[in-house]
Design a protein around this nucleic acid. Structure first.
Lengths: 133, 133
DNA sequence: AATTAAATTGTAATCATTACAAATTAGTAT
DNA sequence: ATACTAATTTGTAATGATTACAATTTAATT
């Protein structure tokens, strides 16, 4: 995903085009590893040593608010982020800690009558294929 | 749920019968409000002023480990607990903060081939019926 | 080029949770 | 009943993710 494409996306969402925001989103789009804020920060600092940790939190929050990122709350102690906003489940391996996506159609999960559901999250955990060997 | 019943359950799980552990589990069983550790602690201190916050965390961890409690990781900043271990979904109202249970059969959600799924969590969020009025 | 509101930065605070060591206690053997 | 031992409880201190905030910088517009 190149910067021009991101520019278009940000404009359509009414977001200001800051280099930091672009870098965060680009990293998330190109690395579907569901990183947490610290992981994003460490990557950002590599190419821009003055990148602030607060900026990472601000950018991630902003991108979640406008629907470009999904927060993945599968860890007990920190939030991860996913730039794939299509509906899918997340599996966390309790051995290696990796997150795997899995197909999971929304219609497979019921809701509650009279309640307005705005977000649906399906989190599994266990042992992944590689760790089972 | 009386103390005698809890005694039987704890013995079957090989748990030591401490008054603190019993009090925590009894509270969770009788109050399906999905409280967090602080809420449990504040309730415990009411009847036993020397009840320690660390003990609350220890008890909750122990009860989760032996399968008597389910951790509900629907809040971003803290863990809640549920003594209803049958499979069901959790809905969080983003206005009032309350957690609602909803029916959700396990078979409705798929898994991944070759992966060993040990826990399945279905979290919804949005506006509850009462807050929509 | 000037303006302005928004974004970035760095530091300090917050808050849930964990680490740890000393004191206490439940369950068991004597 | 008493003594013993390992587990539990307690209190304090540390950890670590996240947020608050004020000063500086900057993107977008005039």
């Amino acid at each position: 995903m190149n910067t021009q494409q991101i520019t278009e996306i940000f404009k359509s969402k009414g977001l200001k085009l800051t280099p930091q925001r672009i870098a965060v989103y680009k990293f998330l789009k190109e690395n579907p590893i569901h990183p947490d804020a610290l992981t994003v920060y460490e990557k950002m600092v590599e190419s821009n040593p003055s990148f602030s940790k607060t900026t990472v939190y601000n950018c991630l929050q902003t991108l979640c608010d406008c629907g470009l990122l999904i927060p993945v709350n599968i860890d007990k102690d920190k939030i991860r982020f996913d730039a794939d906003t299509s509906f899918h489940g997340h599996f966390k391996c309790t051995k290696c800690g990796d997150i795997y996506d899995f197909q999971c159609t929304e219609s497979n999960v019921c809701g509650i009558e009279g309640f307005e559901t705005l977000q649906k999250d399906v989190y599994y955990s266990g042992i992944c294929k590689r760790c089972k060997k």
